[in-house]
Write a protein that binds this DNA or RNA. Structure first.
Lengths: 143, 143
DNA sequence: GTAGATTGTGGATAATTGTGGGGATAATCT
DNA sequence: AGATTATCCCCACAATTATCCACAATCTAC
């Protein structure tokens, strides 16, 4: 299970270090693909297999199912860590996630998310303020 | 399993390189045919057999089924890679997919799709913007 | 606090891959 | 038949990518 939030900088070859605790889980390979809110998802091989099977089972005849599988399967990429525990993120995924230099790596249970630091901060700010609102609304309900 | 998104340029003989990771799967030959959304589909021999069986089993009485099998079966072509892992796409398929020079090759699980780069970008722009639908589909799959 | 190990980051070198072209052979046209 | 065109096989080479090594900063253990 992946938990925690870590900051890294891409070197000028586009390589990204993973948190040391995560590395052994990816020793057999990793799969990155497009995630939500301009993030990237990183799965272990076995988690990915399960997901890919489900996506591939969607009907070819439906246009939006095709679009979805093109985004997720076509966007996915098999990669493996180098000896220092780094991975090279393909350019098109870096573009998708608007990743420039500073990156946040976050463990979210069964997957790892990769964010551009600015987007991450922005997103956190928004959700934090939202959670305040939610709490307030809850308190109005007497909780 | 084919995954990933790769960019190539056709040389002036019309040859298209395949991603190195895909090549061994096509060493026994490949089948290209008309795909959906103005792309071309590329199958391994064995995947093609399976799909062709399914299509052939469609009821001849339905006009849609006839049209679909003409599209896929009629457009299909047996080809094989040269020693550098390139394939020569027949002209009528290049025309169908509006392929000119820059090409995107995308792995989508059991098939490989071949797109003109411009059409691919356009298509992606249209689908990426529907991120809420993507989120919904992902949560349906348990992500 | 000090010594040793670990980790983040940067480069150098070696291997692979993308792309181009020449020439031999086969197919097509006049 | 002869000429023209297309197709396949080989080689070549620049550019990209993977692999290995290096080192400073940080952390851990005693």
């Amino acid at each position: 299970m992946f938990i925690g939030e870590f900051k890294y900088t891409l070197d000028n070859k586009g390589r990204l270090a993973l948190p040391a605790k995560f590395r052994k889980d990816f020793s057999e390979g990793a799969v990155v693909t497009r995630g939500l809110d301009n993030s990237l998802f990183l799965f272990t091989k076995s988690e990915w297999e399960k997901l890919a099977q489900k996506i591939a089972a969607l009907p070819l005849s439906q246009a939006d199912a095709r679009a979805f599988s093109r985004l997720m399967l076509g966007g996915a990429m098999d990669i493996q860590l180098d000896k220092q525990g780094r991975l090279l993120i393909p350019e098109y995924l870096r573009n998708y996630a608007k990743i420039s230099k500073k990156v946040v790596v976050a463990g979210v249970f069964s997957r790892v998310e990769i964010w551009d630091e600015n987007l991450w901060n922005e997103y956190k700010k928004n959700t934090e303020s939202q959670s305040d609102q939610i709490a307030e609304r809850l308190s109005n309900l007497g909780i």
